[in-house]
Amino acid sequence: MSLAATARSRSFAPLLRFARRSPALALGSSIVGLVIVIALVAPLVAPYDPTFQTMSDRLQPSSVAHWLGTDGFGRDILSRLIYGTRPTLLIISLVALIMAPLGIAIGIVAGYYGGIVDRILMRFTDMAMSFPRLILAFAFVAVLGPGLLNAALALAVTSWPPYARQARVETQAMRRSDYMASVEMLGIRGPRLLFGHVLPLVFPLAIVRMALDLAGMVLIAAGLGFLGLGVLPPTAEWGKMVADGTPVIFDQWWVAASPGVAILILSLGFNLMADGLRDIMDPRHG
C-alpha cells in the first residue's frame, strides 16, 4: 500500500469505527448532511430553473432530459425537488433554533428555583402544550398571512414545552446531587451555575429529542405547504408539489410521488439520526 493510501485510510478509520458503532446514526446523518449540501449548492446541481415553465412539455414522464419528469406547468421536477430542500430546511432550522433554547431555558430555571417560579413557568408550559399544534399553526398563518417565517413561528410556539419539562426534571434531579451542593458551597450560583454547570448536562438529551422532533417538523412543514399555508408559489416546496400532483395522481403519479419520497427520505434521515444519537448519548438505551 502506498504512503498516501495509508494516510487516507488512517484518516477515514475514525469515521468507519463511528459508522460501525451506530449504523443508524451514520446513515441518518449522511442523509441529512446530503440534503443540507444539496440545499447549499442547489443552483449548481439543478439542471433547470425550478420556476421555468414550458407548457409544451407538461406532465412528461421520466426521460433523459427530465430525469423525474415534469409537472403541470412543464417545470422540471428534479430541479424543483432540489430547490425544495431550501424552504424545508429553513423552516425546521428556524423551529429548532427557537424551540430548543426557549424550552431548555424555561425548564432549567423552573427546575432549579422550584417553588412559585416553578409553578408559574410550568403552568405556562402546560398552557402552551395544550394547544393543538397544527390548529394553532393554521391560526397563526391565518392571522399573520402565509409564509415561511410565520409557519416556523407557529411550529416553534407549540413545540417547546416538552423541552421545558425534560430539562426541568433533569435539573430537579441534579438539584439534590452532591455536585450542586459542592459548587454552591464555593459560591457559584445564578446564571453561571444554570448555564455553565446545569446546561451542559441537560443538553445531550435535548439534542436527541430535537433530532426526533425535526422528523415530525419535516412532515408538518410539508403539511402546511400542502394546504397552501407555507411558502408562497411559485417557490418550489415539497408539500405544495405533492398538492400540485394530486389532481393527476392516477395518470401522472410521478408528479406527487417524487416530492412524497423526498419528504419520506428526509424524515427518515432525522429519525435514524435521533435513534443513533440516543444509543450513543443515553446510557439507559445502551
Binding site: M185, L186, I188, G196
Partner: peptide, 25 residues
C-alpha cells in the same frame, strides 16, 4: 466551611476540565 463528599465520581462536573473546576470558584 467547606466539604469533601463521599463519591468523587458524583461531586465533579463530568464535562468541565480540572482547570475550570478549580479556577471558577
Amino acid at each position: 466551611v467547606q466539604m469533601v463528599f463521599q463519591d468523587p465520581y458524583a461531586s465533579l462536573h463530568p464535562r468541565h476540565s480540572i482547570r475550570r473546576t478549580l479556577e471558577e470558584p
